[in-house]
């Protein structure tokens, strides 16, 4: 019995090692910018700080969030962020009450508009925060989305 457990343990360990080495094979040039510490953060402020090095953001009416008042399918909540500013550099979507709030970060080069639309999973009723970097400054807006049936399942 003990031997069996031991074998199971080593097998699991082996699987982790394989996964880790697979991770190392990811071309670093592609993933260099993926903000891991922001995605790993468990709190909104920690995520923003990990991304931007500060938590001070200016609430702006020029950042518009289009999201449903009530999400019927919590695994697919359509979020659209439309920023009425020039020189938007990035848009991030943060779901405050998710286990890991930081959901997505979009990089916007010159010539691309401050607009993005995507679908996200929501664990429960939460504020959805749009964090926008424009002209080196951070702006934000938030909107509450009610989730009627829980579950982050897919």
């Amino acid at each position: 019995m003990k031997r069996r457990l031991f074998l199971k343990g080593t097998l699991a360990g082996g699987a982790i090692a394989v996964a880790a080495s697979a991770g190392l094979l990811i071309p670093t040039t592609v993933l260099a910018a993926w903000p891991k510490s922001a995605f790993d953060a468990k709190k909104v402020d920690d995520a923003i700080n990990a991304l931007a090095g500060t938590t001070s953001t200016t609430s702006s009416g020029k950042v518009k969030i289009n999201a449903p008042e009530i999400a019927e399918v919590s695994a697919e909540v359509r979020i659209t962020v439309d920023v009425e500013m020039d020189n938007v550099e990035s848009i991030s979507i943060i779901v405050e009450n998710n286990p890991s709030p930081f959901t997505a970060h979009f990089e916007i080069p010159a010539g691309t508009l401050g607009y993005v639309s995507t679908r996200v999973k929501m664990a429960k009723t939460s504020n959805v925060i749009a964090l926008v970097k424009s002209g080196g400054k951070l702006y934000s807006a938030q909107k509450e989305v009610k989730v009627t049936v829980g579950g982050c399942g897919g």
């Binding site: 910018a33 890991s100 959901t103 997505a104 916007i108 995507t118």
Partner: peptide, 23 residues
């Protein structure tokens, strides 16, 4: 490159992304 999306696991299954660029 006109757009880069950094996604986390909380983005829905079969991710949908839309954006706009000038020109």
């Amino acid at each position: 490159v006109v757009f880069t999306a950094n996604l986390g696991p909380a983005v829905s299954k079969n991710p949908y992304v839309s954006f706009k660029f000038k020109g």
